[in-house]
């Protein structure tokens, strides 16, 4: 299986994502500079955390126009797995691959801490290794993670089990305590918490590892969604 971790100017969790994936086994993991348009060689694409383009204008607003995002769009259309973590989630909403938007935390704080997440969906390629209702310890590190969507979108997300993770205690004012959502087809996940920073005991949690392991199982079995 081949993984790509897209690197934008200002990404800073790309190495963490690579290191987390390497823990799974001998998969090929490549960091791909954002100017690369063709991502067809990869089975899964990670948009890592960071501050792409300095978060100028809005978080993710400029990164979404990177050539690599065309490759991401195509991969998503083909049913390949795309995960956006933190800034990557912001990029995915700006690109329209996921609904809603991420706003300044309601408390105006930059929150950098371990949080508890509740798994809401375990039928996606990303969450199949968890149980519904299971709680996970995964760190967050963001100032703009307040998920917002209009009521109709929220109903649609709920009805189709597209809310993957919820915060046990809301750190940022996200509507419905939303920490991560799936696209309609289930092959694109965006989440503010950092599963790649919860993959070893010394990190305080290994709960994030299962997410990457689930993706790997899914891609290896070559099951395509949709």
């Amino acid at each position: 299986m081949k993984w790509a971790v897209v690197v934008f100017p200002g990404s800073n969790c790309d190495d963490d994502a690579v290191a987390a994936i390497r823990r799974l086994g001998d998969d090929s993991v490549e960091k791909v500079w954002h100017l690369e348009r063709d991502l067809s060689a990869y089975d899964a694409i990670v948009l890592p955390g960071g501050f792409s383009y300095g978060d100028y204008l809005r978080s993710g607003a400029i990164a979404r126009f990177s050539p690599a995002m065309q490759g991401v769009q195509e991969a998503a259309l083909q049913g390949k797995l795309v995960i956006g973590i933190c800034n990557g989630f912001q990029v995915l909403t700006e690109a329209g691959l996921l609904p809603g938007a991420l706003l300044r935390n309601d408390n105006l704080q930059f929150r950098c801490e371990m949080v508890r997440l509740t798994v809401r969906n375990n039928t996606s390629p990303f969450t199949a290794g968890y149980e519904v209702g299971q709680t996970l310890s995964v760190p967050i590190a963001h100032g703009e993670g307040r998920y917002f969507a209009d009521e109709q979108t929220l109903l649609e997300l709920e009805r189709n089990h597209r809310i993957a993770f919820e915060y046990e205690t809301n750190p940022n004012g996200s509507v419905r305590n939303i920490a991560g959502i799936l696209n309609e087809r289930g092959n694109v996940l965006g989440m503010m918490p950092h599963p790649e920073r919860a993959v070893a005991n010394w990190m305080g949690s290994e709960d994030g590892l299962q997410l990457f392991a689930s993706m790997r199982r899914y891609a290896k079995e070559a099951i395509h969604v949709g």
Binding site: R58, A61, E94, A101, L103, D150
Partner: peptide, 8 residues
Amino acid sequence: TVLCNLVI
């Protein structure tokens, strides 16, 4: 397309 995110 760029300057404003019409969702918010």
